[in-house]
Design a protein around this nucleic acid. Structure first.
Lengths: 137, 137
DNA sequence: TTTACTGCAAACCGTTTGCAGTTCC
DNA sequence: GGAACTGCAAACGGTTTGCAGTAAA
């Protein structure tokens, strides 16, 4: 994510304090923030940042492919910095999300007869279970 | 889905015209309706049905396990009658959704080292691609 | 007869939008 | 200087809720 600002610049985008802060907030692994989380953390560093700008910037990062939107059962979408392709492991009780990297390619498991004429590009897996803190003792 | 009403009754739920109609609307394969779709189709048979009742009934069917909520990138959740476990194939352009049944168990592809101490119960796969109508010619 | 269920309407909350003002290049 | 970006505030749309009335058992 560190050279994200370079890629933005290469696309002709202006580097502003707001965009820099949003990019910084999203840096790291196992980061799955809501737009509101991002606003809160960004505002801690740049108090005058607005909700609209956070949404604008998130949308831009998504269309750049730097960030992936992740729809959960909650109402709010999660924003996931997409350094390397990965899948998600979600706790059914507390909602904790971890990034996981399964062995093998899920795409290979979808036979032609089950593709309905689609050209299939990717598979996105959500594993569900109980995290250690929520597991019955 | 046909004996759903029996299962509801067994749980002590009252069988009303509204619940019957919602259950009927959700019957079938490749059915992934929004709450609004359900309301529209239910109202075609039972004009006085209300939005609140549709949401109530959908929520009940979900907690019964008869219907599965499916969060898409769109704002509206989809409701999927859950007769047999299955996964989804989604067109990235038009949003068409098909039920698919991959060979093999995606759960087997998640090594212990990638489970972060979770007890993993299920895997939910979303395949993305282009449907025949949206594929470039 | 009892109490679960329904319908109405308003509230809720995440997200989007229009626009005037600002700032980066 | 000019286009791109920001902040504000209002609108939007799917979902939830409170409550008075209705109907299943």
């Amino acid at each position: 994510m560190s050279d994200l600002l370079e890629r933005l610049r290469a696309r002709g985008w202006r580097i502003t304090a707001q965009r820099r802060v949003v990019a910084e907030v999203l840096d790291g692994e196992h980061v799955h923030l809501t737009a509101d989380d991002v606003l809160e953390r960004a505002a801690a560093r740049l108090p005058e940042i607005s909700r609209a700008t956070v949404y604008n910037t998130l949308g831009e990062l998504v269309s750049l492919g730097e960030v992936v939107e992740f729809a959960t059962d909650d109402r709010a979408k999660r924003y996931d910095p997409n350094a390397l392709p990965h899948h998600h492991l979600v706790c059914s009780v507390c909602g904790t999300i971890r990034d996981v990297h399964p062995s093998g390619d899920p795409l290979a498991d979808l036979p032609t007869t089950e593709r309905y004429g689609f050209t299939v590009h990717e598979a996105e897996v959500t594993y569900r279970g109980l995290c250690p803190s929520c597991a019955p003792t």
